[in-house]
C-alpha cells in the first residue's frame, strides 16, 4: 500500500469521523462553554487535516495556515470566556437540561 492510499483511506477518514463527533457535541452541548470547547478542538483537528494534506500533495505552503489557525483558536477561546463571564448570563444559565 502506497503512502497516498494509506493517507486517503485511513488518516483522512479518521479525521473526518472525529470532526463529525465534535460537531455532534457542538449541536448537543448543554451550555455555551461546551460549544466553545468543541469549536476549539475543531480548529485543532483542522490543523491536523491541513498537515495530512501537506504530506499528501507535497505542498509546503499549507504549513503557514497552521500557525494562523492556532492563533485564531487561542484568541477566540480567550475572548469568548473573558467576555462571557462579564456579561449578563442569568438567562442562559437555565437552558441546560
Amino acid at each position: 500500500m502506497s503512502m497516498e492510499n494509506y493517507i486517503l483511506n485511513f488518516i483522512l477518514p479518521v479525521l473526518t469521523i472525529s470532526m463529525l463527533l465534535i460537531f455532534i457535541r457542538v449541536f448537543k452541548g448543554p451550555s455555551l462553554m461546551d460549544r466553545v470547547v468543541a469549536l476549539d478542538l475543531l480548529v485543532i483537528v483542522g490543523i491536523g487535516a491541513f498537515s495530512a494534506y501537506a504530506v499528501l500533495y507535497n505542498k509546503q505552503v499549507v504549513i503557514d495556515i497552521s500557525l494562523i489557525l492556532a492563533l485564531i483558536a487561542f484568541l477566540s477561546t480567550v475572548a469568548f470566556t473573558y467576555y462571557y463571564v462579564k456579561g449578563d448570563h442569568e438567562k442562559d444559565k437555565f437552558d441546560m437540561n
Partner: peptide
C-alpha cells in the same frame, strides 16, 4: 516514520473527540 507519526496523531485526535462526546 511519516506514516507512523500520522497514524499516532490521527488516533489521538479520534480519542480526544470520543472523550469530548
Amino acid at each position: 516514520f511519516v506514516l507512523f507519526f500520522l497514524t499516532i496523531g490521527a488516533v489521538f485526535i479520534l480519542i480526544a473527540s470520543i472523550g469530548l462526546l
